[in-house]
Design a protein around this nucleic acid. Structure first.
Lengths: 198, 198
DNA sequence: GTCTATATAGGGATAGAC
DNA sequence: GTCTATCCCTATATAGAC
């Protein structure tokens, strides 16, 4: 058979594996089993081997961002709806309680040397996008940047706790309450009023 | 020579390596280089091999908790000082911007099967301790539990972002502002007033 | 308690048939 | 485009000398 799996489907499997096992834990044997392809076939698609496969995972994340988030930002919605849509998109891609993130796959060990800088620049770009949205929602500039960083911290932390406690709800609750918390007027609601809004 | 490195010092090296490389990335070669011991010597100290070495890292974390946190909790300080001391202890152990955490080493891939449940129970215990302290500080019970979970989320998330951005300050800022945020009266300060207190 | 040497398995990677 | 077979290297682990 020429093709059992489209390139996109192949990369999709790759993404799942990497986010389950981490970079070092993702062996060619694991990929082979997950995709149904032999090791040599994997090298046909990715001559650069494991490193190129990991790069494909990163590139997949980029494409997803450009498609899903880019379309959202380019659309005619008001800034607040864009921000809320962003968190909705986030909830859509994190569906398993275990499941790592870019930041928890590529920022330590062997992967850090190769991909650390790339991940950093993507995160920085993401922080700017979120701060920009908050600014467009009326949050003054220094506060907007601080809240964007806080948002990332809480998102990543929620994923870590969800994985550790094996409870996806931990992540969902945070993602759902964050938009209101971020959009609160600079001297508005108390943290508990915000928590009660969940 | 009989002993170049005490068992405690040996485990200390082990801890550093595991928190730098993750479970899969921590190879015996890396450990050997970090400790100056040959592989066979490592097996003398840990007959169970890599798994026992990882278990020693977990046990080290337990001992640290019992010593550093246990003493704090057993002491005669008021609850608020105990809580603040807890965050101070946290800042003491996280000294490098890269550096993983228990939750980011043992909760995925091969390690998850072996150590996932242990880490989960330790985190649950930690959550109870923190909620108990908050309760003792006058935070009513459902709020205390929610804030304890939020604290863990922000701590872990801050470590992830600090590692990704290679900036330890990200972590430090969160750890320093958290005590005030957690101790705020249930309908007290706004989130920005809290942020301004950093 | 540490070492050298070695056994065995699995990792990444390639050649070449189909 | 996928496979089988194979290569080399590293990983974990052990035996036995010192």
């Amino acid at each position: 058979m020429k093709t059992q799996l489209s390139k996109d489907a192949l990369i999709g499997k790759l993404v799942d594996v990497v986010y389950d096992y981490g970079y070092d834990g993702t062996t060619l044997s694991v990929i082979s089993e997950a995709t149904g392809l032999g090791k040599a076939s994997l090298y046909h698609h990715f001559p650069g081997g494991k490193e190129e496969m990991a790069a494909a995972v990163l590139a997949h994340s980029d494409r997803w961002g450009e498609a899903r988030i880019g379309a959202l930002l380019a659309g005619g919605l008001p800034a607040e709806q864009k921000l809320r849509g962003l968190f909705q998109a986030l909830e859509e891609v994190h569906t398993r309680s275990h499941q790592l993130t870019l930041m928890n796959v590529f920022t330590y060990g062997a992967a850090r040397q190769v991909f650390g800088a790339q991940v950093r620049s993507r995160v920085r770009a993401g922080l700017e996008v979120m701060a920009g949205l908050l600014h467009a929602c009326g949050i003054p500039s220094p506060t907007a940047e601080a809240r964007a960083l806080d948002a990332y911290i809480q998102i990543e932390g929620a994923m870590v706790l969800a994985r550790t406690l094996d409870d996806l709800e931990v992540f969902r609750a945070v993602v759902r309450r964050l938009p209101d918390a971020l959009l609160a007027p600079p001297s508005g609601l108390t943290i508990d009023q915000l928590a009660a809004r969940r």
